[in-house]
Design a protein around this nucleic acid. Structure first.
Lengths: 166, 166
DNA sequence: TCTTAAAATTTTATGCTTGAAATATAATTC
DNA sequence: GAATTATATTTCAAGCATAAAATTTTAAGA
């Protein structure tokens, strides 16, 4: 793990092999973060003014839209990679708004399945269409021929987090 | 703004010129988000267990570290691109912890300057060193020769948000 | 000067997010 | 079958984040 040369140069061993590359990675990370935050901020604003909703709510709806029979709370938090308690709160509010229903699970009274209502599915479809146009517009600075390449690079940043089931 | 062909094909005009490219951009966005969230989650965990602090606190300290004489609250929220109220809360806690001090501004009793204490500067230096090694490790899947290229692509996603003063 | 407008910051209400503790049910083990 | 362990979910406390309203002070205009 440690650089053997560090002990000869009198430097503290930070585990960094190539300082210049490390600085470049740091700058890259800051840009990655900046780009992501920018897109997220625009989406948030669009969801707020256009649909009076939020990105987390959209994410929950998107996950459930793919699975018509619904998901258990634990499956939902696993798919979205957020904590259980977080999903509970967002689902509570979506249920209040008639977008989701909670359905008891047979043979296991601990668990609950959550599913989009008809109204929920319709609302999601409208939002998803807008969402796609927003993204299309926000990312139009990206050279289309680069998209796949860029995708691959990002894939390998996130690779440790999952086996890519998403 | 709208695609003239859409009106002839009977499709609703969503403003999307090239549907295939649009889908590719959407997938790219999801990967961008996933990669960023993954790195952020790792950093949060590292900051929590290693320094009992958070990423937003680190961000505030980083911004102030660069400007020894400190920044006004409004400058700080502008640099960090977060709301005024948000900065107020984070700064409150950092002041309580002896990491920051608030200094009145001469000739303007509305404003406050915020500055790192000596302890704050020392703590930041230790955290920044670790932060760099964490990023180096998290991004080591990126081909070093690609870093600049990737950087440029990201730059053009974020380009509308600022004139690049950061 | 008086009053009106602008600027800097804080406060408030609401929601997202986490990690940890609590609750309830199911499955295992003895 | 009773006690234990594991699983599914919710609750809780703390902090982050926003937008909008409120406060305080400064600046400008009549």
């Amino acid at each position: 793990m440690s650089d053997k040369l560090a002990s000869r140069s009198g430097m503290a061993d930070t585990g960094i092999k190539d300082p210049a590359a490390s600085k470049a990675r740091l700058r890259l990370w800051l840009k990655l973060l900046k780009a992501t935050k920018h897109v997220e901020a625009e989406l948030r604003e669009n969801f707020r003014t256009g649909f009076d909703t939020t990105l987390p709510r959209f994410d929950v709806m998107a996950a459930l839209y793919r699975v018509e029979q619904g998901l258990k709370m634990s499956e939902l938090s696993s798919v979205l990679r957020v904590s259980n308690g977080n999903v509970t709160g967002i689902v509570d509010r979506l249920v209040d708004d008639g977008i989701l229903v909670r359905i008891p699970v047979d043979n296991d009274r601990r668990a609950t399945t959550v599913r989009l209502t008809k109204a929920g599915r319709e609302q999601f479809e409208a939002m998803a269409a807008s969402h796609e146009t927003w993204i299309d517009s926000l990312l139009d600075g990206i050279n289309v021929s680069e998209v796949q390449h860029l995708s691959d690079q990002l894939e390998c940043i996130a690779r440790k987090s999952t086996k890519g089931e998403d």
